[in-house]
Design a protein around this nucleic acid. Structure first.
Lengths: 338, 338
DNA sequence: CTTGGCACTCACCGCGGGCGAGTGCCAGCA
DNA sequence: TGCTGGCACTCGCCCGCGGTGAGTGCCAAG
C-alpha cells in the first residue's frame, strides 16, 4: 500500500502532466504543489511509484508521466468528479431545450458534449429494447409491399420496408395493425417477441404467410446491431492530441467510423454509473492511447442508452466526468418531457 | 496562349507531383517523361508557366509545384476522366447491390467512395423536392399529437411530430390522410405546396386549424436545410494529407462537421455533369487547401442529389473523377430498381 | 528556339559541443 | 526510519557548422 503522500505525489503528477503535456520532474512538482517535502524526497517517492508501475519515464533523465495504471488509480481514488458551475448548467439546459425531435436532441447533445469536453463525443440513440412501444404502424405501399414504422416513448422512429411474397389485403393489414397495437402498445419492446408469438394463428391461412413475414421483420429490427444507432461529433478535437500526429490519430478516426466498434465500446461499459476505460483497458487496439468516459442516460430511473467522450488518456478526468454526467442528466430530463 | 509543349510540361508536373508529393525539377521531368527536349528548355517553359501563375516554387532553388490555377487548367484541358476497369465496375455493383434500404444504400456508397478514392466521401440523400411522393401518412399518437411520415419514390422516409392545438379526431385525420394522398401521391414534392393550398377549405371549421398546422408542418419539411441530409465517411484518409498536419487537417474536420457547410459546398456545384472545385475556389476558408469533386446522381435522367469527395488539392483528378462518376451511375441504377 | 555550360542558391543532413532539467545515490541529521 | 541537501551523471534538445546535391537563372553558341 502506498503512503498518503505518495498518492498525493501521483495526483500532482497527473494534474501537472494533464496541464502541461510534458513529463514532470521532482523539482517542478515541489514548486507547483505544497507537498511540504523536498525534491529529493519526491524523487524517492517517484522511484517507488515507478517501481509499482504507476508512472514511467519516456527517457532516462526526463520527468515522469503517468501510466494507464496510474490514471486508473487517480480516477478511482484520487479524483472527485468536478461538478458543473451554475452558469454551465444553465447553458447546457438552454442549449438542449430548443430541440424539436429526437434527432435534434441527439445532435445537440453531441455538439454540446464535444464543446464542453473539447473531445470527441459519442451519443447512442435510446435503445429500442429498453424503450416502450408507443405505436406500430403498417403502411401498404404496393400490393405486396408494406412499410413498418415503430415509434417509441423516447421519440425514436424506425422504419423498415417489407416485401411480402403474396399480396396483402388492405383490410387484413388494418386488422393486423389493430391487433398488433392492442397487444404491444405501452409494453416494453423487449417483451414484444412473446406478445406477438401466437398472432399469426388469428389470421386466415392465405394471410398467415404475410403476417409472419411482417412479424419477423418487426423482430429483426430488435436484434442487436440493427437496433442500435449513434452519432459522433467533435472529431476536429483529435487534432489537439499531441505532436506525433498521424500515427495516433489515424487508428482513432478509423475506429470512430466503425459503428460496430463504438457500440461494443459503449456496450462494455457498466449499465449504471459512470464508466472510465483507460488506454489499453479498451479492447480495440486503435484506441489504446485513448480513454473513454461513458455513462447511461434515460428518462426515468433506468438507462435507455449511453453517451460519452473519447479523448487522449492524458485528459482532465474530473472535468470530463463532470461534463458527461451533467449532460446525461439533462438529456434524460429532456427525454422525459417529450 | 501557352504552346502545346508547355501544356505538356504542366501536365507532367502535375502528374509527378501528385505521385511523389515533392516539388518536381526540370531534370527529373525530362527523365520521367518523353518530352523530347532538354532540361534547359523545360526550365524556360517552367519560367513561363510560373510567370503565368500555373506553377510556383516553395523555396528558391527547389522544384515547382502546381498552383490552384495550374490544377484548374490541368482538369479543364489536360486530363481525361479515367474510366473504371471492368473488375472495378463489378466490385462497385456487387458492393451496392446488397443494400436493404436507403440508409444502407447511402452508407455503402459513402464507404465505397472513401475506399475507392482514399479520400473523404460525402453523399447527399435524395432531395425531397426533387423526388416524387409515394405516400403521406398521418398517425395519431395522442389526441392532439400527430406524426407525419413522408415516403418518396427514392425510398427516403422523413417523419415529423406535430402538436395540434386542438384535439384532432380520428375520422377527420383519416379524411385528411385520404384527401392528401389522392392529391399528392405520384406528384413531385416541389408541386405539393400548390396542390394542398386549398385543402383546409374542405374541412369543418373546428378541424381547420389542425389541418392547417399539419399542412404547414408538411411544407416545413420541404424547406432547404431541413430537407437535406447527408452522410460522410473516410475521414481517416485525411491523415494521408501531408506532413504539416494539425494546421491543415483541423479546419477540414471542422468544416466536415458542419452539415451546412457541406450542403452549401455541394449546392454550389453544377446540377448536371461533374464539378471540380480546386483549393481557393471553395468559398469556405478551411477548405482552401482541398479540392471537391462532385456529381449529381439520380434514378432517371434527372439528378435527385449529389455525391462527391473532398481531398487535398494534390489529388489524382482523373482517377477520382472516374470513381465518383462510376459510383454515381451505379447508385442511380440501384435507386431506380428499388 | 533549343541546347549545353556554368555559377549560384539554399534546403537538407549529419556532426559535435554546450546547456539544463532531471535522476540516482549517499551521507548526515532528526 | 525517514527526510534532506549535495553531488556526479545522463541524455534529450538546441544550435551552429560545413558538405552535398538538386534545382535554378543566365548566356552564348548552334
Amino acid at each position: 500500500m502506498l503512503s498518503e503522500r505518495r498518492l498525493e505525489v501521483l495526483r500532482a503528477i497527473v494534474q501537472d502532466y494533464v496541464g502541461t503535456e510534458e513529463p514532470v520532474g521532482s523539482k517542478a512538482l515541489t514548486e507547483r504543489h505544497r507537498l511540504g517535502v523536498s525534491p529529493a524526497t519526491v524523487r524517492n517517492d517517484m522511484a517507488a511509484l515507478e517501481e509499482e508501475g504507476y508512472i514511467a519515464q519516456p527517457h532516462t533523465s526526463a520527468g515522469r508521466i503517468p501510466t494507464d495504471k496510474g490514471y486508473r488509480l487517480f480516477v478511482d481514488k484520487l479524483a472527485a468528479v468536478k461538478p458543473m458551475t451554475p452558469p454551465e448548467r444553465r447553458a447546457i439546459q438552454n442549449f438542449l431545450e430548443g430541440a424539436v425531435d429526437l434527432d435534434d436532441v441527439v445532435g445537440r447533445t453531441v455538439r454540446l458534449l464535444a464543446q464542453l469536453t473539447r473531445q470527441v463525443a459519442v451519443v447512442q440513440y435510446p435503445s429500442l429494447t429498453r424503450s416502450t412501444v408507443r405505436h406500430v404502424e403498417l403502411l401498404s405501399l404496393a400490393p405486396a409491399r408494406v412499410m413498418l414504422v415503430l415509434i417509441t416513448d423516447t421519440g425514436r422512429v424506425e422504419q423498415r420496408m417489407i416485401d411480402c411474397h403474396a399480396p396483402f389485403g388492405e383490410t387484413s393489414l388494418a386488422d393486423l395493425r389493430a391487433r398488433l397495437n392492442s397487444r404491444v402498445a405501452g409494453r416494453r419492446f423487449a417483451d414484444v417477441p412473446q406478445l406477438v408469438e401466437d398472432l399469426p394463428e388469428a389470421f386466415d391461412v392465405e394471410d398467415r404467410g404475410s403476417v409472419t413475414t411482417v412479424l419477423s421483420a418487426l423482430l429483426e429490427t430488435l436484434v442487436e446491431e440493427r437496433e442500435e444507432r449513434l452519432m459522433i461529433g467533435g472529431t476536429a478535437n483529435l487534432t489537439r492530441f499531441g505532436h506525433d500526429f498521424p500515427l495516433v490519430i489515424r487508428p482513432v478516426l478509423e475506429a470512430l467510423e466503425e459503428q460496430v466498434v463504438l457500440l461494443k465500446l459503449l456496450g462494455e461499459a457498466k449499465d449504471s454509473g459512470m464508466t472510465v476505460r483507460i488506454g489499453h483497458e479498451n479492447a480495440h487496439e486503435g484506441l489504446s492511447s485513448t480513454s473513454v468516459v461513458s455513462v447511461g442516460y434515460g428518462s426515468g430511473g433506468e438507462a435507455v442508452a449511453k453517451l460519452g467522450v473519447v479523448g487522449p488518456t492524458r485528459m482532465d478526468y474530473p472535468g470530463t466526468m463532470g461534463a458527461v454526467r451533467a449532460v446525461a442528466r439533462y438529456v434524460g430530463q429532456i427525454l422525459a418531457e417529450s
